[in-house]
């Protein structure tokens, strides 16, 4: 008996509604964050991540209400990412009931922000989200760089060095997304996941590319991740979280089964 590996469904929220097509068959309102959160909680999700993709920062107050509502009904850890740029943004989300916040772009432009945030609120609630893309060619040793703006803008920063730096600055967890794999359904970039996971002392969440249950297991067994994040395979009812957990447990991975 020991610490379980985690499955974390991720929900994109735009102006208070879950988008990117969540299509459960027996759900009344497919866009309602509370209803979807409750559904995943019942299925055995270990945590939930909400990504605020609202374009206008003026509408971010809506996300605060979403977090408040979900936190009042679902009693598992909640992470909120997207648009977290100031200490005040973190304070608002934690007060609303979030347990952790994901910092992405702001960390790249102002690494000191991660330090300030960890000092103020504790490392346990600071997740640094890293969007990495392979920049090496076939014959070179593997190398990845940090990209911002949804994978469009290169920064020239080495992903492994960056992860180590973010942990030094106080990140309590790394959410690692392979921009090469995101949306492809061909599986995680396992080499990247393993490189980061072995380089840092904090837990790593693998993200980007999950298309089936074997991909989830591979993220843990081959990628050495501590948790796996996925969106579409759960949203469209292809697999339930319970099925995913059983499949992973059958491969000897420690899971929280109900």
């Amino acid at each position: 008996m020991s610490l379980a590996k985690r499955i974390i469904p991720c929900l994109d929220v735009d102006d208070g509604r879950v988008v990117k097509g969540v299509q459960f068959v027996d759900i009344r309102d497919a866009g309602d964050p509370v209803e979807i959160a409750r559904r995943y909680d019942n299925e055995g999700a270990d945590e939930l991540t909400f990504l605020d993709i609202t374009a206008s920062s003026g509408d971010r107050e809506t996300m605060v209400h979403v977090v408040e509502q979900v936190a009042g009904e679902v009693f598992i850890p909640l992470t909120v990412g997207g648009g977290i740029r100031k200490l005040q943004d973190i304070r608002r989300m934690l007060n609303a009931g979030a347990d952790k916040v994901g910092i992405n772009t702001a960390a790249v432009f102002t690494p000191e922000f991660v330090k300030q945030a960890a000092d103020r609120f504790g490392s346990q609630c600071i997740v640094v989200a890293i969007d990495a893309k392979r920049v090496s060619t076939e014959n070179e040793p593997a190398r990845w760089e940090i990209f911002t703006h949804g994978g469009r803008k290169p920064t020239g920063i080495d992903a492994v060095e960056w992860a180590i730096k973010m942990v030094d600055f106080g990140a309590g967890e790394i959410l690692l997304t392979s921009m090469d794999r995101d949306g492809t359904k061909i599986g995680f970039d396992l080499e990247l996941t393993r490189a980061i996971s072995e380089a840092v002392t904090v837990p790593v969440i693998a993200s980007g590319g999950v298309g089936n249950l074997q991909h989830l297991a591979d993220g843990i067994l081959k990628g050495k991740a501590d948790a796996v994040l996925a969106a579409s395979i759960f949203h469209f009812g292809e697999y339930t979280i319970q099925q995913a957990k059983r499949a992973m447990a059958n491969q000897g991975i420690e899971m929280r089964l109900q």
Partner: peptide, 11 residues
């Protein structure tokens, strides 16, 4: 290597 913090669901 054991990750710190100890984070997640344990028995």
């Amino acid at each position: 290597a054991i990750k710190i913090p100890h984070m997640g669901w344990n028995t």
